[in-house]
Design a protein around this nucleic acid. Sequence first.
DNA 1: TCGCTCTATGTCTGAACTGACATAGTGCCG
DNA 2: CGGCACTATGTCAGTTCAGACATAGAGCGA
Lengths: 180, 180
Amino acid sequence: MPSTLGFAILAALAKDARTGYELTAVMNRPVGYFWTARHSQIHTDLQKLLADGLVRFEAEHGPGPQGKKVYHLTPEGRAALRDWVTEPPRARTERDELVLKTYASWLADPAEMAELFRAQLLLHEERIAQYEGQRAGFAGVPDPGDPTFGNYAALWCGLSYERHRAEWCRWMIGRLDPSA
Amino acid sequence: MPSTLGFAILAALAKDARTGYELTAVMNRPVGYFWTARHSQIHTDLQKLLADGLVRFEAEHGPGPQGKKVYHLTPEGRAALRDWVTEPPRARTERDELVLKTYASWLADPAEMAELFRAQLLLHEERIAQYEGQRAGFAGVPDPGDPTFGNYAALWCGLSYERHRAEWCRWMIGRLDPSA
DNA sequence: TCGCTCTATGTCTGAACTGACATAGTGCCG
DNA sequence: CGGCACTATGTCAGTTCAGACATAGAGCGA
């Protein structure tokens, strides 16, 4: 059984054959919005997927000490990915540093704390604008069988998340600094 | 510099002196809503905090091969925690398995996918009910200087998050299974 | 033609973390 | 008084991951 990152790689390769280097790029954007990895991790996991027969590669001439390897899914890889998609996700342990800071915020100066949340709010507002721009690029909602359906659905989730987060920041600022 | 878990431990100890065992319990609930750890990790980190002089303990007679150690913050520990609280959080890499599955969902049967989201929606609705019950236990919003302020603020965030997530699940179900 | 940036591969160390293993006192119920 | 659940400590092996290190061709501009 591949790791979750392994499935992230399979998901990216399901759309197009790619080199490890290109996978690193997509793991940065757009996949990086919900799953990230460094190229060192990607190369390690590609070796495992290769050993499990879920991907194969064609060597091509190219830069680098070892040339270029274009990876693609095997039929087994595609089947493994399809089976995994509909299985319930493993419960991830929540890890949210900002909420942890909030939990201990009674020790800090409220005005300084409000400053922190104002900076966070700005970040979220920027992302909302960015995501809304991306959504404008879609001509309507893609069909569930369309390869871009996942992109749209993930974008919807991200936009909703950023709005929830921005709302929380505004509430916090109002509580910490009622004069503002 | 302690790890984030180290600060989570300091945050818990800022409210009350505790044993490692009791810390394990609070890291499960309520701190576990936004930062989790196993007792093995907590014991390891307590050793580091001890070496850094941020916590100290009083040995007491009690069960276990080594008796009982009640940990409490040192003044340095309290100062380190207070400084950390208002510093911007390190950017955590987003890791969301359900969104990743969504990204690859164009390969799967929409009806099966809708089933997955119906199960997720149920979980979120349960948590919303649970959090609303917890919020009813508060007599109004605590003041930012009140030690329970963080609990309330984290609860607000959690409730807002669960509602956002539930909304997304409902949208997904509507897209995947328009007959429902 | 020198150097820079981009493409492209990989290894290695250390930190954080999980899950299993190990030990032992205390209090309670039958 | 036997056994179980709870309190309480800790170690260890293995996984995941980030960040640093290492190598090298290709293309471009000064």
